[in-house]
Design a protein around this nucleic acid. Structure first.
Length: 747
DNA sequence: GAGTTTGAAACT
DNA sequence: CAGTTTCAAACTC
């Protein structure tokens, strides 16, 4: 890979030659961490599991620091950077229980500990909860441009990783009344803007680098901080705009309220490229959460600098920088939340100009986010990509995403394999050896608990480094996560550059490589149908299978695995796919009517549903479909809860559909089954093309169908263009967008 | 858990 | 484009 053109290109972008990494490998083991002698001798340290605490630790130089404050304590940080005498560990408590954290050896680059202090202070100011835990951690600083550490990626970034964890659970634990919780973060955070004014400019002066910030939400792993709080009610209801402290940001703040969601995006001027500002704003925005305070969530903010970005941007003055922008402007999405930082490159070399917080969830697979406590949460699943391509209806996210603490994590813990903190996705700035956390014990995790994590992809890749489509995680557009048993995994946030570059390379080869494998027939509102039929009807594998021996009756067959019948696209032999065989009769509605007596009740139901869909589609102004795939697929899908259930893939095409569905479902006659005549009349317009297809708006170029021996892909565009009205053939429409947002659209 | 089978993906 | 190899999931024992 190092010799691949893409990496040559990447390397050529950076005028900065790799230097020896100063990184010191750190294995962050909470147990180890917990066992460290407390730097602070605060009497409250011992009650971490139940107390509010601010924890700050510095690991880059192998020193670990932890600050904690207990109930009633207020954390006050000394922001005087020059005060080198304020050594780490110094603290004092006054009568109002203020805990002085001090500086870390006066190094201005680490005064982000202030943030935690500020947060803690804010939390203290109004929260009366006995457990309002706030933890700020700087995990490490890592200059990861070393090809030694990362032989497959040129990673000229210096990053600091700051982890901020907010544990608000205790706030409503007492009375179980969320509404009673009045921890107004918005006020908490900014009731003293001056106090929040960090000495962050020193960082810029010191490093003279542009900065970028990334934010990652993830759930806290059990045991990470000794907390023993139950896992429940994880929900962030609101993200609000930033406070005055970011005055310039506020002026440009856009707030869009949608349901209980507020989305804000704020512009940050050049002078605010300070990573501290970034991180602060990010954190504050994230922390400005209201609603459920059963929240236990960790926000990881990765901020850093990129010298190569500077050079590149200066050299090119805002021209070609797609790759850099990909690495600069990234959106990490996790469960219900996403925090994205849009950092465009301005002529001045400015990297960051916008930071936005989205609560819009962007899922790869809806099933990954099923509301099911028994399922492994995918909250830690992160999607990569540029921000600009992401836009969702928050209500959809509300419907579709809810996460719970991963039981797998707990299981892993029980098995004695502690989930590293945390498998490189968040703490990925470690040396390569740390990345390879996979142990033999974790091998074949999937097979050990085949049902536990079916809503969550896990791979066991050994050779592909999870950077090929062999890897299910990578193919699905998600990071590998803790349950994965992959080896040498590069499909992690720390390798976002590599991931994106690889992805782009693959997409160059096949623009639809990351598109869902199963596409639905002329149905642009799949989510609605799914709700109705609960079956993966009206879908086909986009390429078809090529099974020779499995008879398309095993999950080797992608069609079968996807719960769809084989189609003319398949080259399978001796197809016996229970969802529809390749050479089976291509039924139409008319034919189905004549055969209705021969269908069983289930099939009739499916037909009715299909017709209801037709009706619905009419109501929506969309043409009905004649496809009777639903009939052919009426056999209950044995993997209905399977992660790969195709109809639930890529829900981010679902915002509109869900909306439409919700609207239509309110119609009193929605469930009225049309008369037979109506049914037939509704067949007429079957091939109306969704607007977005008619407009040829798909950025994906048409993929021509090739010889039957070759894999075939039908693109939306090609389908739309080749589908004249009133033609009654089956039509397959790729409905979903690739799992990764467009790589080049983050301007 | 180890080994085998299978077919997609990648490679030539 | 076709054949081959690689790969990891699915499957079997």
């Amino acid at each position: 890979m190092q010799e691949s053109p893409i990496f040559d290109f990447l390397n050529s972008l950076s005028p900065i030659k790799p230097v020896k990494s100063i990184h010191v490998t750190q294995t962050i083991n909470p147990f180890t961490f917990a066992s460290l002698p407390s730097v602070l001798t605060s009497p409250h340290v011992g009650s971490l599991s139940r107390s509010r605490f601010v924890r700050w630790r510095q690991l880059y130089d192998s020193s670990k620091f932890e600050f904690s404050c207990d109930d009633g304590s207020t954390v006050l940080i000394n922001r005087t950077v020059e005060n080198t005498s304020a050594k780490l560990g110094e603290h004092q408590e006054n009568r109002d229980s203020r805990l002085f954290l001090g500086e870390i050896d006066g190094d201005p680059s680490y005064d982000i500990s202030n943030i935690g202090a500020e947060f803690a202070r804010c939390s203290d100011s109004k929260c009366s909860s006995p457990r309002c835990d706030i933890k700020v951690e700087q995990i490490e600083e890592c200059s990861t441009n070393s090809s030694t550490l990362f032989p497959f990626t040129q990673k000229p970034f210096q990053r600091d990783l700051c982890e901020i964890e907010v544990n608000l659970e205790g706030l409503c634990q007492a009375d179980q009344n969320k509404e009673a919780i009045s921890c107004d973060w918005e006020n908490l955070m900014f009731d003293d803007p001056d106090l929040l004014k960090l000495e962050s400019s020193n960082y810029n002066l010191l490093h003279n680098k542009p900065a970028y910030a990334e934010a990652i939400f993830r759930e806290r792993s059990e045991g990470e901080n000794m907390a023993t709080l139950p896992d429940e009610g994880i929900e962030v209801l609101e993200i609000t705009e930033p406070h005055d402290i970011f005055t310039s940001s506020r002026n440009n703040c856009n707030e869009k309220k949608d349901g209980d969601l507020k989305e804000f995006s704020s512009s940050i001027s050049n002078s605010e490229l300070d990573p501290l500002n970034l991180i602060q704003q990010s954190c504050i925005s994230i922390l400005k959460i209201s609603g459920s305070y059963h929240e236990r969530r960790r926000c990881c903010l990765i901020f850093g600098t990129s010298e190569s970005q500077i050079g590149h941007l200066e050299d090119n003055a805002g021209s070609d920088s797609s790759i850099l922008q990909q690495s600069v402007g990234s959106t990490f999405l996790s469960d219900r939340h996403s925090v994205s930082t849009n950092m465009g490159n301005e002529s001045s070399g400015c990297i960051l100009r916008e930071m936005s917080l989205h609560r819009h969830a962007l899922a790869v697979n809806q099933n990954d986010y099923k509301i099911d406590k028994n399922e492994t949460s995918d909250s830690r699943r992160l999607l990569l990509g540029s921000c600009s391509s992401i836009s969702f209806n928050s209500s959809v996210a509300d419907l579709e995403f809810q996460t719970n603490i991963s039981e797998q994590e707990s299981n892993t813990l029980e098995n004695g394999v502690f989930p590293m903190e945390d498998d490189g996705r968040v703490y990925g700035y470690a040396a390569a050896e740390e990345i390879n956390q996979c142990t033999p014990k974790r091998k074949r995790f999937r097979s050990e608990s085949p049902r536990d994590g079916e809503t969550c992809k896990r791979c066991n890749c050994k050779k592909s480094k999870c950077l090929k489509l062999y890897c299910e995680c990578f193919a699905a557009g998600i990071y590998c996560m803790e349950p994965c048993a992959c080896i040498d995994c590069f499909n992690k946030p720390v390798h976002i550059d590599t991931v994106l570059a690889t992805r782009k390379q693959i997409e160059t080869r096949n623009p639809l490589a990351f598109a869902p494998k199963v596409i639905k027939a002329s149905d642009t509102r799949p989510e609605s149908w799914e709700d109705l039929s609960k079956s993966p009807a009206s879908a086909r594998h986009k390429r078809g299978c090529n099974c020779k021996k499995s008879g398309c009756l095993k999950k080797y067959c992608e069609c079968y695995q996807g719960g769809v019948g084989c189609s003319v696209n398949c080259r399978c032999e001796r197809c016996k796919n229970t969802f529809g065989i390749k050479d089976g009769p291509c039924l139409t509605i008319m034919e189905a009517d004549s055969e209705e007596d021969e269908t069983n009740l289930m099939e009739k139901n499916v037909l009715d549903i299909s017709l209801q869909k037709t009706d619905l589609r009419q109501n929506l102004g969309y043409a009905p479909s004649t496809s009777l795939q639903g009939i052919r697929q009426s056999v209950p899908h044995p993997y209905s809860t399977n992660k790969k259930t195709p109809t639930s893939s890529f829900p981010y095409n679902s915002s509109a559909s869900s909306f439409y569905a919700s609207q239509i479902l309110r119609r009193p006659n929605f469930f009225q089954i049309p008369s037979r005549l109506d049914k037939r009349l509704q067949m007429v317009k079957e091939d109306d093309i969704p607007e977005f297809l008619q407009q040829g708006s798909s950025p994906i170029p048409c993929i021509k169908s090739v010889s039957p021996k070759r894999k075939r892909v039908l693109s939306p565009h090609s389908v739309g263009q080749s589908s004249p009205s009133f033609r009654s053939s089956r039509k397959l429409v790729l409905q979903s967008i690739p799992s990764f947002p467009c790589l080049t659209s983050n301007q």
